[in-house]
């Protein structure tokens, strides 16, 4: 009896088709992201009015950066954060204090804000990692409210409820816009790289089943702290831009829970833990909130609530999560 004849192994794919497959597998995502950001970079050319640029268009990349920041912790490692408004406020105050009180230049003040919010995020993430799901959400909410109270009462540094004026630092509208866009691009790059790396796998493992992840040797608390810290590092300079764009901050305007809820809305609609969906949702809803509804902004809470409600019930996996949508967009 002769040995069984094995089928010949198919040759390793080479040539043009393989290159195309590889390109499709690897690069269409990056290409798509670059195209999206190029379009966003061209937006000021379409609306050359500096007033529109500073008061309306600026908010599109600004929300985008915040949404992607929330996506790092809320999407990948599953930490529902209601504390990002606190990080935003800390970023705004840190930038303003270093730029005005200590006379640093704008970029280094915002870098300082990134460092402060990174460390604060690490702290909140680490202490909060003992709690899961909704209890973490409550803890972050309380932490942010406490931070707001401290800022309100620490009058020697923050001037308390009088507010903190930043009149002498004038950034041009295009500086603001491209600064926010750069932050949005950095945040998106972070989300993209996390989604393709071991860290991202660890984040998702912790999200899906923390006990199992721990049992397989993943240091869950460390990864949760890291996710929140990275997320916080984006919120700092984003808050700084808010401060420099509005020239004046006080404990109620810089600490605004509504921003937190709006970015949750964007990530939930776009799909938690996705890269492209939240960008699209952020652009659309930034436009909705800052352009389409400026005359209805007394209904901002109502609209935010209804959209979150509808999105959670109807599109639990995000706008690109439907079956008919091309796979190429689902990342």
């Amino acid at each position: 009896m002769s040995a069984p004849v094995l089928p010949a192994a198919s040759p390793a794919p080479t040539g043009f088709r393989d290159l195309a497959t590889r390109f499709a597998r690897w690069n269409h995502r990056r290409t798509l992201l670059i195209v999206v950001f190029a379009l966003l970079a061209l937006l000021p050319v379409l609306y050359p009015s500096p007033y529109t640029l500073a008061t309306v268009l600026f908010y599109i990349p600004w929300y985008l950066a915040m949404a992607q920041s929330w996506n790092i912790s809320g999407g990948f490692s599953g930490q529902l954060s209601f504390g990002h408004w606190g990080l935003l406020g800390v970023g705004a105050y840190t930038s303003a204090i270093f730029a005005v009180t200590y006379g640093w230049n704008v970029v280094s003040a915002m870098a300082m804000a990134a460092v402060v919010t990174f460390l604060l995020g690490l702290l909140i993430g680490y202490v909060g990692s003992a709690l899961r799901g909704p209890y973490f959400a409550i803890a972050t909410l309380a932490a942010a409210a406490l931070i707001q109270l401290v800022v309100l009462n620490w009058k020697a540094v923050t001037l308390g409820s009088l507010g903190f004026p930043i009149f002498y630092i004038l950034l041009s509208p295009s500086d603001l816009y491209y600064g926010a866009l750069a932050l949005g691009a950095i945040a998106t790059a972070m989300v993209y790289l996390i989604s393709r790396s071991r860290i991202g796998l660890a984040f998702e493992a912790v999200r899906e089943n923390e006990d199992l992840a721990t049992a397989t040797g993943i240091y869950a608390r460390g990864y949760k702290a890291l996710a929140f810290g990275l997320s916080g590092a984006i919120m700092g300079p984003v808050g700084g831009l808010y401060a420099f764009a509005s020239h004046y901050i006080d404990p109620t305007s810089a600490f605004n829970l509504l921003y937190n809820l709006q970015i949750i809305l964007m990530v939930v609609v776009g799909g938690r833990g996705k890269v492209l969906g939240p960008i699209v949702a952020a652009v659309v809803f930034a436009w909705v909130f800052e352009v389409a509804l400026t005359s209805f902004n007394v209904y901002n809470y109502l609209i935010t609530g209804v959209v979150i409600f509808a999105a959670v019930l109807l599109v639990p996996r995000g706008i690109f999560g439907f079956r008919g949508i091309p796979k190429a967009l689902q990342f």
Binding site: G78, L80, F82, G133, P134, A137, L261, I264, V268, V298, Y299, N300, Y301, L302, T304, G305, V306, I308, F309, V312, L313, P316
Partner: peptide
């Protein structure tokens, strides 16, 4: 409506928070 969903606790948290926003505005 979401009783049988995975992440039930997170989902109801988001839904009730949305409810809070709606009620506050109303």
């Amino acid at each position: 409506p979401v009783l049988k969903r995975p992440y039930f606790e997170d989902t109801t948290l988001l839904l009730t928070f949305a409810g809070l926003l709606i009620l506050d505005n109303v």
